[in-house]
């Protein structure tokens, strides 16, 4: 039996506002295995970000529990890295300092090593030459790539990414997908990846949870048995299209 990095058991999240309460997540069960890449796919407002924030430890569950390596999550920590849906750089730091900021708590590396690592990861996300730019001088897509570099640089066991490529153009998006595939096969972290792009979910994942909205539920779980490593060719294969059809049918059925 494979080791589980993360297990969510009957997780309920309710938001209350002035005596009115809103059920955002309704008894969510999911798990992420060691080194596994899992995607959450679903329509806008189905609670993907909410679930991710619970796993990140930024919000508390209303009911149920989330276990990270058998430990209940109580607060954020460096064992989980987060790429937020909106830009989340520190505006007063240069691009490379934003990346190096993630290594602040790392006492084993010298300042110089941290800087080199930051430069290396910026190059990896295609931002060579922009090391000294301030976030305000970068486009939305560039800022998001810095945020990805920041999440990669300290190698957390579990990476949480909330629609990280939403702001990127199609070409950059493809490049970043391949980069993520490459880096994660190397770093062997587990990933919880939020997206509403069906192709992206299938292409990147070992498993996809399809969610439905109002209230947020897991509607379907699909194991993606495409050989790894993958390249873009796989997106034209029969199996890929079979998965795509399955997911689209599920999403379509929710509209009724």
């Amino acid at each position: 039996m494979a080791v589980n990095e993360l297990v969510a058991q009957s997780v309920v999240k309710e938001f209350s506002h002035k005596k009115k309460s809103f059920l955002a997540l309704d008894h969510i069960n999911l798990n992420i295995g060691e080194h596994e890449f899992v995607s959450l796919l679903g329509p806008s407002g189905c609670g993907k970000s909410t679930l991710l924030r619970l796993v990140a430890g930024l919000d508390k569950v209303s009911e149920g529990q989330i276990l990270l390596r058998d430990q209940e999550i109580s607060k954020p920590g460096r064992d989980r890295g987060v790429v937020f849906q909106q830009y989340s750089l520190l505006p007063w730091l240069h691009a490379w300092e934003n990346v190096a900021f993630a290594l602040k708590k790392d006492k084993t590396k010298s300042k110089q090593e941290k800087k080199e690592l930051a430069f290396h990861f910026l190059e990896l996300v295609g931002l060579k030459g922009f090391e000294d730019a301030y976030p305000s001088q970068m486009s939305g897509g560039m800022q998001q790539r810095v945020a990805i570099a920041r999440a990669l640089v300290y190698k957390p066991n579990l990476l949480l990414m909330d629609e990280p490529f939403g702001a990127l153009d199609a070409q950059t998006r493809k490049e970043m997908q391949d980069l993520v595939l490459k880096v994660f096969t190397e770093a062997r972290s587990s990933v919880l990846f939020v997206t509403h792009d069906v192709d992206e979910a299938i292409y990147l994942s070992d498993r996809v949870y399809v969610m439905s909205a109002k209230p947020g539920r897991i509607a379907k779980e699909i194991k993606i048995d495409l050989p790894k490593p993958r390249d873009w060719n796989v997106q034209l294969s029969e199996e890929f299209l079979k998965y795509k059809r399955e997911i689209l049918v599920e999403l379509q059925s929710q509209k009724k």
Binding site: G57, P76, R78, V82, W92, K104, K105
Partner: peptide, 26 residues
């Protein structure tokens, strides 16, 4: 959102105040 960045990177309360909130508010 910037405070949450600090939290997810494992900064403690004092570091959040010193390196994030104070810097952002400066």
């Amino acid at each position: 959102s910037v405070v949450e960045v600090g939290l997810t990177l494992g900064l403690n309360k004092f570091e959040i105040i010193k390196d994030i909130i104070f810097r952002a508010a400066l």
